[in-house]
Design a protein around this nucleic acid. Structure first.
Lengths: 228, 228
DNA sequence: TTAGTCCTTCGATCGGCGCCGAAGCGTCCT
DNA sequence: AGGACGCTTCGGCGCCGATCGAAGGACTAA
């Protein structure tokens, strides 16, 4: 008698460490090549190839062939959400050796969470937006206040476009490392977009970690009273 | 370099078919004993015991000892959410043999989704509530209209209590079988509670499937214009 | 065409883990 | 008390699947 969704096959795809690392890496939001993913997971190219084939077959990933490169990315927002939700269940890693500790520290400070900002910076920004009366909490969502409309407009965020988007507008997303909520949804994505446009934060290549630039540091202090 | 949440161990807990079945069974929302879970997963008691121990160690489940019985339940709402989100990624099962098809059919019609109503009935109820102007959509949430306040009060749902609950009020939840949204959150849970109180739907023992009673059938037709 | 990448397929190896039955411990019924 | 029941621990078996190296196809740049 089958009375259940078949969790097992999907979970099995995620359950193997190399595959989990690949997925986590792709959770950064950008597409990566097979070799990059193999290096990240620390397995032979042939092994990585087999894993990637399974992930594609299970429609967790999609491939795009460009010349002799194959770019893999998460198959959709649902996959990202499922992974993030799963991530809430796993405790933050401890980081034994000094190198790991350093990397973890940076990751904790600021990173991308698929398409929006996460880490201490993400949590702090949401707090500041709430405190300044730019956002208001509303269950798992957020609403933009009257004052907020102006603030986002001045910041270059197109609220109408964000509202039209076929996705959640400003979802609350539990931060994996901070265990406190940050801002996701269309608004969160737009916000990160503007932060990158203005070079207040910069993406690192092939990493999820983000760097707060000096310009960003002072701008955030000025705009939202954030100190780091 | 560890830069990721460690998905693998958690996913591995879900990845083994017997464990996945146990989790799915507990997603029904009630606590079950070790033997019940063993029977459901179709493994020997000793095997089930080992699996359950792992699930508890991984804090996906919690145990409550009552006499010589051990009642297992999901460790928290987060676990339920993670499983549901994962469930969206897995296609609905096909059901080859006639028995499975029948069971699946019933499951599709009405079932519990942790603590709220799911299946065709759940989806239809949400639709009716929206059409009758009792609820209004609001992103991934719902709001109760003025008319809705009265309707829920008449139905015996304590909206204040639902709003005070430390959880999402009326979240939209993607239905696993229907692929259309039904109503979750505190309001969804309260609604199911009243439906069961009034014996409009009845829980089956050790199954997720729910039965719509004759009284419920006519009451839902009267109250919300639903026909089945 | 030729050389150099990128990636996959194939074949063989090996280790981890699920599986069960038997035995043991604790709890409940009479 | 005695016996039945619920559940766990232990020991040994067996299998699935991850792993790698080597070889082959695909594409690019000269």
């Amino acid at each position: 008698m089958i009375r259940h969704p078949h969790f097992a096959p999907i979970a099995a795809l995620i359950a193997e460490p190399p595959r989990a690392v690949m997925l986590a890496e792709l959770l950064g939001g950008r597409a990566l090549t097979a070799t990059e993913l193999a290096a990240g997971a620390e397995v032979a190219p042939s092994t990585a190839s087999a894993h990637l084939a399974k992930l594609v077959a299970g429609s967790l990933l999609s491939v795009e062939v460009q010349g002799r490169h194959r770019y893999y990315r998460l198959a959709g927002r649902e996959v990202a959400r499922a992974l993030e939700t799963l991530g809430v269940l796993v405790g933050p890693p401890l980081g034994e050796d000094p190198f790991e500790r350093a990397a973890l520290h940076e990751l904790r400070f600021a990173r991308t969470c698929y398409d929006h900002l996460a880490g201490q910076l993400g949590v702090a920004m949401r707090c500041a937006l709430l405190e300044r009366g730019i956002l208001r909490e509303d269950g798992v969502e957020h609403r933009v206040t009257g004052r907020g409309e102006a603030w986002f407009a001045a910041f270059g965020v197109d609220l109408q476009a964000a509202r039209r988007a076929r996705r959640s507008f400003a979802r609350r997303c539990l931060d994996w490392t901070e265990r406190r909520p940050h801002l996701a949804g269309a608004l969160g994505a737009a916000l990160l977009g503007r932060l990158v446009d203005r070079a207040w934060v910069t993406r690192r290549c092939n990493e999820r970690a983000l760097d707060l630039t000096l310009a960003g540091r002072s701008a955030l202090a000025r705009e939202l009273g954030l100190r780091f």
